[in-house]
Design a protein around this nucleic acid. Structure first.
Lengths: 137, 137
DNA sequence: CCAATTCACTTTTATTTTGCAAGTGAATTA
DNA sequence: TAATTCACTTGCAAAATAAAAGTGAATTGG
């Protein structure tokens, strides 16, 4: 558990992992535009950290080589159940939640199914990024 | 989810909640002794934050009035499922994990049961602190 | 009782981290 | 080929943190 705190007990790492796992963000520029407003030096620093701790892998876009994207590793994807638990908690206790009731329903009725749905979504986003699909490896 | 990040997206709040929910810590002095080594000014600051965000309630020990303890609210206790999810992840990915295999087994076989077990544990610790038991209210 | 100690904080100061703004250089587009 | 996009770096002021030394109420020991 101390291990977990070390890796994403930092606000910005937490936000980045959330954006990769739940919001389909992949490109450096995507992260810069997050609502929380991360500054570019901190972003570069945290992406490097997450790469070192094997949560993200860095890829130069083969089509447009001035762009770079980051993909979540299996280790990062394994955070999904915990993250969905956090989402449920937010839905329960955030008086300003914008989450649709369908999310809470799906999570209580079939948590494993919800995780599978988000996993599939990650694959779908990855598939749009050339060298992410198993076929290209 | 931004709500969650705001409340415990801070390393020290995260550690304090973990210690209250999972390690039975209640007294100011208990937290000071955490392995992560929080300094006393930060501890006071974070306890106040967690009180303001209604995660903890502050109580002067009626037996020894120079001591103070903090109890997790329902809102904090509702984090248990997410925290246990994080524990599972740590067990999976921390090469130096010290968690017994029995934890992973219990979690995979009966997650709801595991949450209930930790909830009961919280009550047990609380019961040792006079005005925490429903009977004294 | 009363002096010494415990306990939960505060205050102060040095150090570290952050956020902002302005680069930099490779790659791409016009 | 000049202008622009993109992923970072650098420099600096401001904010947050850690360490150490108080502070004051409550408690204990003699």
């Amino acid at each position: 558990m101390r291990y977990a705190a070390g890796i994403f007990g930092d606000k910005w790492c937490f936000v980045l992992l959330r954006d990769v796992l739940l919001h389909g963000k992949r490109y450096y520029g995507d992260f810069l535009g997050s609502e929380e407003g991360i500054s570019t030096n901190i972003l570069a620093n945290r992406l490097a950290q997450l790469e070192k701790s094997e949560m993200l892998t860095r890829h130069v876009d083969p089509v447009k080589r001035s762009r770079v994207y980051y993909l979540p590793t299996r280790k990062a994807r394994d955070l999904l159940p915990a993250f969905l638990g956090l989402m449920m908690w937010s839905v329960q206790h955030d008086p300003a939640t914008e989450s649709p009731p369908s999310f809470a329903k799906a999570m209580t009725e079939d948590p494993a199914g919800a995780v599978a749905w988000y996993e599939a979504n990650i694959d779908k986003v990855n598939a749009t990024l050339v060298d992410a699909s198993p076929k290209s490896l």
